[in-house]
């Protein structure tokens, strides 16, 4: 189980003639990911979801707050002391076309981390080849076909499966999948999502799924939880189905309204929420961060900062003074 409390991260923007500017990427985020759970971070570009994912995978530092991995605090630990903890969390990269070394065969790509793993666990070197085949079979590709080949000889979907197999070489307890299907052909996306779901069920691996497409979050399994991030804050958080079917925060509603309607198969939701202006990260931080773009904002939103809570007796947590149910998602023609 991994928990975080009050994680903040500010990037310094340098190189401007006018001096640096602070860009807050995360403004105090709490999260909890159960063993074997499925958590999705959702938001538009620049909301901090990728930064948070990288912090959880141990690839980025954080300014304040605390991350606990099975109760052990991570801040203040040296790199060497942290390393065994973060071995258990592996990142699946977004782009399977650049995540694999083009000059190495898949066999070489998997052999290097497996050799390390064999040394860590005291297994003989003969274990490596068998394990590579086992992992490739686990992610649903034919080891005999894939092992001697180079990445350019494989399709995008196969490469992504190899990337997942590579992440599994370290026997992780959690996979961080950052936009893991956005670069893959539509006909094969569900295959990768089904694989992540399958790994959860069969290996008990928890999955942290980072995406801007909420629809894909439904497919990584039951009992999932969604965190909607906006400008470095969680604005709504709850079970996947209730966030999708019954969102109360206007930002979540505008994300869901933006999803294209498959005319002929679906009809648009009864209400649509469209932000009144585009995202401007330089806007003042006073009050609700979404107030300037929110079609429903009031004076209170401009001046007071809402905190996560169950205001209005909602199932999910949300940070809005005026929570209201709106049916924004497209519904199937037959429903």
């Amino acid at each position: 189980m991994i928990t975080g409390t009050g994680i903040t991260k500010t990037f310094k923007q340098r190189g401007s003639v006018l001096g640096g500017r602070d860009v807050p990427a995360l403004r105090g985020v709490d999260f909890a990911i159960e063993k074997g759970g499925a958590v999705s971070f959702i938001g538009e570009s620049g909301c901090g979801k990728t930064t948070l994912g990288r912090i959880i995978a141990g690839l980025e530092t954080y300014d304040s707050g605390e991350i606990l991995i099975d109760g052990a605090p991570m801040s203040g630990l040296s790199h060497r002391k942290r390393q065994p903890h973060f071995r258990r969390i592996q990142l699946i990269h977004q782009d399977p076309y650049s995540a694999l070394n083009p000059t190495r065969t898949i066999h070489q790509t998997l052999e290097a981390p497996l050799r390390l793993r064999a040394r860590q666990t005291g297994r003989p070197r003969s274990w490596i080849d068998g394990r590579a085949e086992e992992l490739l079979a686990l992610v649903g590709i034919d080891p005999g076909y894939v092992l001697p080949r180079y990445p350019h000889q494989l399709s995008g979907g196969m490469r992504q499966r190899v990337v997942i197999a590579r992440a599994l070489t370290m026997d992780p307890e959690m996979l961080v999948a950052d936009e893991a299907v956005s670069m893959i052909d539509v006909s094969m996306r569900l295959g990768i999502l089904a694989l992540l779901k399958d790994l959860r069920e069969r290996l008990g691996v928890s999955v942290l799924f980072i995406t801007h497409d909420i629809a894909t979050a439904r497919y990584i399994g039951d009992e999932g939880e969604v965190y909607v991030l906006y400008r470095g804050q969680v604005v709504e958080r709850g079970p996947t189905e209730s966030i999708i079917a019954d969102p109360v925060h206007p930002y979540t509603q505008s994300l869901l309204s933006a999803i294209p309607v498959l005319h002929g198969l679906e009809r648009p939701g009864a209400e649509q929420v469209v932000p009144t202006e585009a995202l401007d990260e330089r806007q003042a931080d006073a009050g609700c961060l979404f107030a300037r773009r929110c079609p429903f904002s009031t004076d209170r939103c401009e001046n007071e900062t809402p905190v996560l809570g169950h205001l209005g007796e909602t199932v999910q947590l949300h940070a809005c003074f005026h929570p209201k149910h709106r049916s924004v998602i497209p519904l199937g023609v037959g429903e």
Binding site: A194, A215, E335
Partner: peptide
Amino acid sequence: AIPRLSGDISLARAL
């Protein structure tokens, strides 16, 4: 094969 917001998840499958 399109991930969708509504409808039965179990009916969806990859090609």
